[in-house]
Design a protein around this nucleic acid. Sequence first.
DNA 1: TAGGTGATCTTG
DNA 2: AAGATCACCTAT
Length: 196
Amino acid sequence: MPLNETFYTNPDVVSVARELIGNVLCVNNEGTILKGIIVETEAYSGRDDKACHANNGKYTSRTAVFYRQGGLAYVYLCYGVHYMMNVVTNVEGHADAVLIRAVEPIENVDVMQQNRPQARSVKSLTNGPGKLCQALGIKYEHNGKSLLGNDIWIENGSIIPMRQIGVSKRIGVEYAGEDAMKPWRFFDKKSNFVSK
DNA sequence: TAGGTGATCTTG
DNA sequence: AAGATCACCTAT
């Protein structure tokens, strides 16, 4: 069962980031459905979070999708090389999103390996935000797409017990000063597919 | 540990 | 119009 609109419109983006752990990211990659269990996420908030692209009401062509109703994909190119996959959350007018940082490949892994030939092991196929987009075939064309459609969506997975979910500060956001210390990264402690 | 890479945002 | 920056990855 795909996650529904109510899940995505939750106004508490930090809770959504934690609840996404254990669910399954699915992409229709030229007719083949690729799936991976979400094992690592980060929350970004449009309010009081200098690490967020849409912080403090910042509205540009890139951040426009942040302000729409939860349940859309926000995809952008980072460092000229890697795409990043985010889930827009909260209701219209509130700019929150969750970055998917790592997944565990579970379906059509062979196609993921074709998409990412430089990966030397299954473990290194999707254990990072840029890596998982390359493996799953997520590109800029997915930006703004509904997660309730047939191209990209998230399905219910197994429930991960709270004690099994690790928490830390977010990665790669030192420029955000004090906001870089927010404990908004979540991961499955038992997974071998969390990023380094 | 350093450099590649290009869209995005600011004028550093 | 140009320069800085950047939610990363790979190979030395």
